[in-house]
Amino acid sequence: MSEPTQSSPTRPPTPSALSSRSDRQFEILILALASVIVLVFVLSIYLLGSESWPALQRFGLEFFTQRTWNPVEGVFGAVAMITGTLVTSLVALAISVPLAIASALFVAEYAPKWLANPVGYLIELLAAVPSVVYGLWALFVIAPVLSRWEQGFFQDPARLALYTSCKNLWDSGSTTLQCFFVPSTFDGRGLALAIIILTVMILPYTASVARDVIRLVPQEQREAMYALGATKWEVISRAILPYARAGIMGGVILALGRALGETLAVAMVIGDSQDVLKSLFGGASTMASVIANQFGDAQEALHRSSVVTLGLTLFFLSVIVNYVARLIIARLTPKGIQ
């Protein structure tokens, strides 16, 4: 390496031997700091694992098949939370995906540029609204509306009789499919409200990924379809969506990951009850909501450990879901975007 004669004022005099040593030191420093990420990940598994060990040791795999969650008797089974998490997430996903894709189509295909940008930005802001704010809004605005509907609907004597028979069934510990649609409480909180607010919260994740992949569909794809005499909708449904399908799927799975771990908004509105799918309009719980609602108050070690086991389950669930989403998105991020 030759020493240039002219040197800038900021350039320190570094002989090459020294520079290679400092290069090495810099690399080690950067690697050490970057390893904190790996360390946090490993520590998470270790700490969650060791904290949930007592519960796993006590209940084994029965933890995941036992329906009873009873802190007083010291019996902990996670069926109610697992079904609650899956039902709220999957139903919210099913409602939000068509809406998200439609809004992505609007932004990418229909709206003129002056409208597309602000609408796209508004949709992204939906992702920036904190979970507690969604929870507050759902609790103060939507819950009273739902509550009024529930009460109004069951004022009719025939329906009231249905409610009474369901109530008797519930009290005796059984239920029917029909009773699932009868409110067990009338305050508006419950599974349905959790699904509504989750739907709104995960919309922007699918929408923004869908918008990006729709924009990546080659223009020729559209033009070829138009040249065949297709209408705009035919172009969208037969040329654009099939082409973008896999990428949109990545966004859907990303949204699923969000839904599974969404905590406070759900904890505030789901009406913390550990019944297994008792009523669509009554208390339920998800894994995240139980952690938020019970971990702070849990006195017994076994109760705490059981709550942490829910956290560990949630951890692995989100690792898997996010990994799959990244895989799909990475596979499909084609030439051109990066």
């Binding site: 998470s44 942490v308 956290g311 949630l314 690792v319 990244r326």
Partner: peptide
């Protein structure tokens, strides 16, 4: 790991 960590629910990070 960085990508996967981005998807860990915030409440779980609180437990950790």
């Amino acid at each position: 790991i960085s990508d996967v960590l981005a998807g860990i629910p915030a409440i779980v990070m609180g437990l950790v």
